[in-house]
Design a protein around this nucleic acid. Structure first.
Lengths: 336, 336
DNA sequence: GTGAAAGCGCTAACAG
DNA sequence: CTGTTAGCGCTTTCAC
């Protein structure tokens, strides 16, 4: 269309070969200084920008990193994207975000798209489910999983949260205040994260001499509305005095249900959430929660991008980020 | 590197010309049915994905839309990105997000990057400031501004918020409860948004017979910390009974300052924020605020992408989104 | 219906 | 130090 400035047009303009221009622009040593200067100046004047497509076509890596998230509405994901984007910028990489809504078909579509533009790598929260033809789509695409981890046929790295200790502490903390009816809402156990968090909860309960009650443990596809509904069910069934959430969306959903009913925390029920959105400190005098250091997570993830995927690494190598329990008002003792 | 599947490799595999493969894959009419079927199946089997770089190099538009936001930490921007991403997906476009942190140099860098990859268009919250060589960087790039509007030398469309009425109502609402010391914190007036919101505030004050007090009006580069500090200054100076914020970040910052001091809203001071993060309803019995329909904003913005940039349009055409005042507890009457 | 050639912008490899 | 050639994957144009 409009006459883009290319190395050829600059070359013609200067009456030299386009190769010389190319070399000058890419700091090749074998260019006479004045030639280089002339080229650089003319390029500057004309507003030359290198065509990434041409570079990509030669097989070079694209400066694009794909990020697949369930959504950006949850503050945890938004903060991750924010931090991650900053890390990438330092590495001169560009971030493409696709929202999966935890739907595997959308995940598939997104990966296909990223493939088309030859994304350098994809960082993803894997959606629940299995893709038959996944291997085909993931080929030639570096994959970093985070939060959750799915078995892939492609070698991949995972950055996961080590929250077992924090969840155990949450149970202990509640038990020490006299709670013995502690409910748990978490992701379905077919998710790696759902599985490990539930285990941590159960282990924690047993550790303080409480027997986990299957009636007050709910694990389903994690989402805001799942948390919302589960919390209502638990309350309606009565006799639950405390509640621990094992998921970002779940936590917000459950909290919403409680607040919407005008419940007082911890007056009516003790609550420990998951993730630490900025506003948890301002609600109900402070919401206790399991806090994930999102900036660390982003940084560690970004650092993995720098490394070449070692062939001798585990089929699925893991990085851990440690979560911590933050206690505020919402997890106090219940009124009798 | 690894053997990507291309039309040529498929062609060779099938013993036909790559042109036939190309035609078959792009639904060209002049291909024998069985040929097409064979090609389609083989492509399917091998996991062929079209190379976007090759397409782009031929001058076709890239399916990439750039989005330049100050950050993703503010829930408003995160929600916009979320909605916008969903709209784009429906149009089979991909979203690249760059965070500017309201720094014009980062904006410049981002646009350059988007240029390199031949982004189809860029949607941006323009940062404060002016770029001398902006024209050069924006050439060949469709621009949609939103929230704020900068005069560009390139024709561009803007989607802005019509919040004058809502701000006027906010003043009225406070005045009707007996407030006469109403402070205002907003963006600097060199920003189009800062300018228009301040005007609306002043007009509103005059409308209810109050004279705006320059000591209780603060306009600066908008940010969380600016809102945070400004609120503290206003409180320390005393005699302010109500506060209106004119910006997303400012609102959160100011609110944080108030809550951190343990102030009661509206007991100690009446407060009306800007934007409506999900949690405003849960804090202090509900934070009154000026609400912007973010989904509408995203949708309207995405719709603009479909339209070819009409040449006969205004140099900077405008779309308006109307804001509304939402009153909750925080804007009640002050205790005397 | 199908194929061969050319060219988008760039750089590696080989001439000078 | 500089220039020429070739080819990345694709589609448009022109043959057959």
């Amino acid at each position: 269309m409009s006459n883009r400035v290319t190395i050829k047009s600059i070359a013609q303009d200067l009456g030299i070969s386009h190769m010389t221009v190319s070399r000058a622009l890419s700091n090749h040593p074998k260019v006479r200084e004045d030639t280089r200067k002339a080229v650089l100046q003319r390029a500057q004047e004309l507003g030359y920008v290198k065509n990434a497509a041409a570079t990509a076509m030669r097989g070079d890596k694209t400066p694009i990193i794909g990020l697949l998230l369930p959504n950006l509405v949850n503050e945890f994901y938004a903060r991750f994207a924010n931090s991650f984007s900053m890390c990438l910028e330092a590495k001169r990489l560009q971030l493409i975000i696709h929202l999966t809504n935890d739907d595997i078909n959308r995940e598939r579509q997104s990966i296909l798209k990223l493939h088309e533009i030859q994304a350098n790598a994809v960082v993803m929260v894997p959606t629940p489910g299995i893709l038959e033809d996944e291997r085909k789509y993931l080929r030639d695409l570096r994959v970093i999983q985070f939060i959750r981890k799915r078995e892939l046929q492609t070698p991949s790295v995972a950055v996961v949260i080590d929250d077992a200790a924090a969840i155990g502490q949450a149970v202990q903390h509640l038990a020490s205040q006299g709670h013995c009816q502690i409910a748990y809402i978490g992701g379905k156990t077919s998710l790696s994260s759902g599985d490990s968090r539930l285990s941590a909860f159960i282990t924690g309960m047993q550790g303080v001499g409480l027997s986990p009650d299957t009636n007050t443990i709910i694990t389903e596809m994690p989402s805001f509305s799942m948390g919302y509904q589960s919390a209502q069910v638990l309350i309606d069934n009565g006799h639950v005095t405390a509640m621990i959430c094992g998921g970002f969306e779940i936590s917000n959903g459950a909290l919403n249900a409680l607040l919407e009913r005008g419940m007082h925390l911890p007056g009516d029920i003790s609550f420990i959430g998951y993730g630490d959105p900025s506003y948890y400190q301002w609600i109900s005098g402070g919401i206790s929660t399991i806090q994930i250091p999102v900036d660390d997570l982003a940084k560690k993830t970004a650092d993995l991008l720098g490394q070449a995927p070692a062939n001798n690494q585990q089929h699925t190598a893991q990085q851990q980020i440690t979560a911590a329990l933050v206690t505020r008002q919402s997890s106090g003792a219940i009124a009798l």
